[in-house]
Nucleic acid binder design. Structure first.
Ligand code: SF4
Ligand code: SF4
Lengths: 145, 145
DNA sequence: ACCATATACGACTATTTTAGTCGGATATAG
DNA sequence: CTATATCCGACTAAAATAGTCGTATATGGT
């Protein structure tokens, strides 16, 4: 199937979450995870990846957490997804164990790579600042107890 | 990752293969598989799926095999992929065990579904008749012995 | 100084999906 | 009648994904 991983999904939601709160105040992984009902440790790893790729900045210790490294309007869904999943290729031409053995004389490769281009462009056209309209979901906030 | 499965890949290659030979003469799964170095039984299953979805016609018995059910120019990569993998959704909102629990108040869903649209359109714009330029690869034909 | 809270990171297990295999039933041309 | 096919389901193997755990480290507040 052609689909996004849960991690990428979490990443997008988290980044959007961060784009909503006050710019100065960082949000902890726990806070974000609880607000959206995702496993804390897993989200934490995703966020750490985003930090390493320079999309987020982190702050250790109490009252710490994560915040956007730059403006939401200059950050795209493509940036986030690629940071989490690495380079995106719709074909599996090159896997861990070298190339697909029929790569040299493959005939569907080139047309599909054009499709890949289109996909990348579509994802790049989605700015984080465009995501969602309202505030973060309130439904589950009670779960915070 | 966002990628096509091997099956879809095989399907595309097989369909293209069929679009090259003489229209009347069907090709067997064995023949196609050997020509492109793919596991016969697996390809066979893929082809059977394509038959069931009406993209190919099959012919039992000796000298039998598969052939396109309609013109290569009226068949798209999207058709083939969807026939093999089922409906394509870039998000994993709805899996086998019901919906993603935060679907009702998810904020990234709608923008991504627009991306999904674009992807579908890109795949639909690739006609089978457009695939590759040359003949089927000859490199491995000797393996037929 | 101490402690609660957070990030950081790696190793681990579990689950799911994908890939590939096998065995047998049915159809058909020669 | 036989060689060659499609057809179909059940099975195993391998890989990717999802989620967990333990531990080290940083930091703000008391
Ligand atoms: S078959 Fe062609 S497209 Fe598919 S992986 Fe191998 S090279 Fe890439
Ligand atoms: S989080 Fe939103 S987008 Fe991701 S699966 Fe659940 S509903 Fe679909």
């Amino acid at each position: 199937m052609v689909k996004l991983s849960k991690k990428a999904d979490y990443g997008l939601i988290a980044v959007r979450h961060l784009s909503q709160g006050e710019t100065g105040k960082p949000s902890s992984a726990k806070e974000i995870a609880r607000a959206h009902g995702m496993p804390v440790e897993l989200l934490a790893k995703v966020l750490q990846k985003l930090v390493k790729q320079g999309l987020l900045v982190s702050h250790h210790g109490a009252e710490g957490g994560y915040a956007l490294a730059r403006e939401a309007s200059s950050m795209t869904a493509f940036d986030v997804i690629r940071a989490i999943e690495g380079p995106i290729f719709i074909t599996s031409c090159v896997t861990v164990r070298g190339e697909c053995e029929q790569a040299p004389h493959c005939t569907v490769r080139e047309p599909l790579s054009r499709v890949n281009e289109v996909l990348a462009q579509a994802l790049s056209s989605v700015r984080i600042s465009d995501l969602g309209g309202g505030l973060p979901p309130l439904v589950q906030l009670e779960a915070t107890k």
